[in-house]
C-alpha cells in the first residue's frame, strides 16, 4: 500500500504507523459525560467503504495525517495533515 504524504510525496505504507479512525481528532469536552467519552474512545462507524484514518509518518516527516481510503478496495484517495483536517 502506498500513501501520498502531503509533505514527502508517495511513500510505502511501511513508513507509517496507523492509529485508527480519524474520530480520535474529535476529543469531547472534559465534562461531556460518559456517553460521549465512551463513543469517542470505543465506538466506531467502521465502514466497509470509504473511511478516514490517522496515519503517523513515523519513518518520514513525523506528520500525523488523515488518510481518506477505502477499506474494501484499499484505494487511497487523499492524505492531509491532521492539523488541517479536523475530525
Amino acid at each position: 500500500m502506498r500513501i501520498r504524504c502531503p509533505l514527502c510525496g508517495e511513500r510505502d505504507s511501511r513508513e507509517f504507523h496507523v492509529m485508527g479512525a480519524a474520530e480520535w481528532l474529535a476529543r469531547p469536552a472534559p465534562d461531556a459525560g460518559l456517553e460521549a467519552w465512551d463513543a469517542y474512545l470505543h465506538l466506531r462507524d467502521n465502514p466497509a467503504g470509504p473511511t478516514r484514518e490517522l496515519w503517523f509518518h513515523e519513518a518520514g516527516c513525523g506528520a500525523w495525517l488523515v488518510v481518506a481510503r477505502d477499506t474494501v478496495s484499499h484505494a487511497v484517495f487523499e492524505a492531509v495533515p491532521a492539523w488541517e483536517a479536523g475530525a
Partner: peptide, 13 residues
C-alpha cells in the same frame, strides 16, 4: 513520541 505528536498535531494544533 507518537502520542506527544498526536496531541500536538491532532488535538492542540
Amino acid at each position: 513520541w507518537r502520542h506527544m505528536q498526536f496531541v500536538r498535531q491532532g488535538l492542540r494544533p
